[in-house]
Computed example of a mutant assay.
Amino acid sequence: MSATVRSSLPPRRVVRARELAVIIPAHNEADAIAETLDALSRQTAVPRRVIVVADNCTDATGYVAAAHGADVMVTRDNTDRKAGALNQALAALGGDAPPFVLVVDADTRLDPQFIEVAMAALTADAALGAVSGVFVGERPLSVLQQFQANEYVRYGTQIRATGRVSVVTGTASMFRTAALRDVAAARGDLLPGTRGDVYDRGAITEDSELTLALKTCGWRMVAPDECVCTTELMPTWGDLHRQRVRWYKGMLDNLREYGVSRVTLRYIGQQAMILVGILTIAALLLLTALSIAAGTFALSGFWLAVGGVFILERVITVWPGGPRARLLAAAVLPEIAYDIALQAAFVHAVALALLRRDTDWNHVTAHETPLFVPSS
């Protein structure tokens, strides 16, 4: 008597090109693009059309992408970084653009149900302009990367607890094409930028700027639990500092461009709270040092209890990250040092914003190989 063998894989369907286009902007991502494309092929809703936008590449990004079944588009004379590359790709879709567009970073892997869940959310609610991914870090290889992984887990916990999406993440988000067209039509008038552009060429953090643009145009956004995407973690303190300075300064620049409005008030408040946090930590460290120097430092039951609650909160909010995440959170002091490093990056970003100086684009360099040339 033969036994029936059931597959453990989830049911799969192919998402037709007229339903969804996947766009992957890539600058020298030959080392990462294969895993990103493989993750797309494992989706419960497999996209038929995947476009890798090879932007000023000097490595084998295009070759690797083509070998994995993607269409490769090479940008032309793009000097506007990721925003310019995405604008060219979206313009190439033209009037034949499908109702949904998924933008994925070249070093990001999607969980298997991402596309299916995101499309279902957008289909069910006509007021939704975007479905943001909930990003988590790749497997940490150092304490520094574990700090970042813990930070990302906490961000996911915050989204689940509040239901609010602060930024439509650039790592992986799906958009309603009609919402992107609204943004393009409002550029140069209601929104900063050049009319016809979806992404503002002048923004160094295009994801946070597009978030403000979508909200200003009246579109809502969500981040379902199933829409998880795994992204890279910075390998060195220098890489981390440069990344965060760009993130912070990008938001500060965006808020200066948009001014005070119903949409920006909450974001302005967030920046103010970061400053309050910096001042609080500085005052705490100063007062502790002075009390130790004066010989008056003493532990009290009340503050020990407060500290215990603080430790408990730190551990609970990273619980999904596993034992290493919880152990690092329970140690407290290392994460406080990490927070101070992030605050230093914020102060650096504020200084650059006040001086109207630009910051470098942080890219973890891949190996240099010949430029991809598409076949005729």
Rank of each mutant, 00 (worst) to 15 (best):
95 G>T: 15
317 T>D: 11
118 A>D: 03
79 T>E: 15
200 D>F: 12
252 L>C: 06
250 G>Q: 03
326 R>T: 09
103 V>R: 03
166 S>P: 01
181 R>H: 14
49 R>D: 05
309 V>Y: 08
114 F>Y: 15
133 G>N: 13
70 A>N: 02
162 T>E: 06
278 I>E: 00
214 L>N: 00
42 R>I: 05
4 T>W: 14
188 G>A: 09
117 V>M: 02
85 A>E: 08
276 V>E: 00
140 P>E: 05
124 A>P: 09
137 G>V: 00
324 R>E: 07
68 H>W: 10
303 W>D: 12
352 L>I: 09
118 A>R: 01
337 A>T: 11
163 G>M: 10
267 Y>P: 02
89 A>C: 03
1 M>A: 10
186 A>P: 05
173 S>N: 11
230 T>H: 12
269 G>M: 07
200 D>V: 12
92 A>D: 07
283 A>V: 08
2 S>R: 12
99 P>K: 01
157 T>M: 12
210 L>Y: 02
286 L>D: 10
173 S>Y: 09
339 D>F: 11
183 V>M: 04
156 G>R: 06
195 R>D: 05
108 T>Q: 11
295 G>T: 06
139 R>G: 07
314 R>M: 12
372 F>L: 05
292 I>W: 15
278 I>Y: 00
321 G>N: 08
22 V>M: 10
122 L>H: 03
257 E>F: 07
348 H>C: 07
311 I>C: 01
107 D>A: 13
145 Q>C: 04
376 S>Y: 12
176 R>Q: 06
174 M>C: 07
91 A>C: 04
172 A>F: 09
373 V>Q: 07
43 Q>D: 11
370 P>N: 06
42 R>E: 12
126 A>F: 10
61 T>Q: 01
65 A>Y: 02
119 M>R: 03
130 A>Q: 08
219 W>P: 00
299 L>Y: 15
233 L>Q: 05
113 Q>M: 08
131 V>S: 00
273 M>F: 13
373 V>P: 04
171 T>S: 11
296 T>C: 09
175 F>D: 03
294 A>G: 03
316 I>S: 06
271 Q>Y: 01
273 M>I: 03
247 W>I: 01
244 R>D: 13
282 A>F: 14
184 A>Q: 04
259 G>L: 08
71 D>L: 14
339 D>I: 15
309 V>I: 09
53 V>D: 04
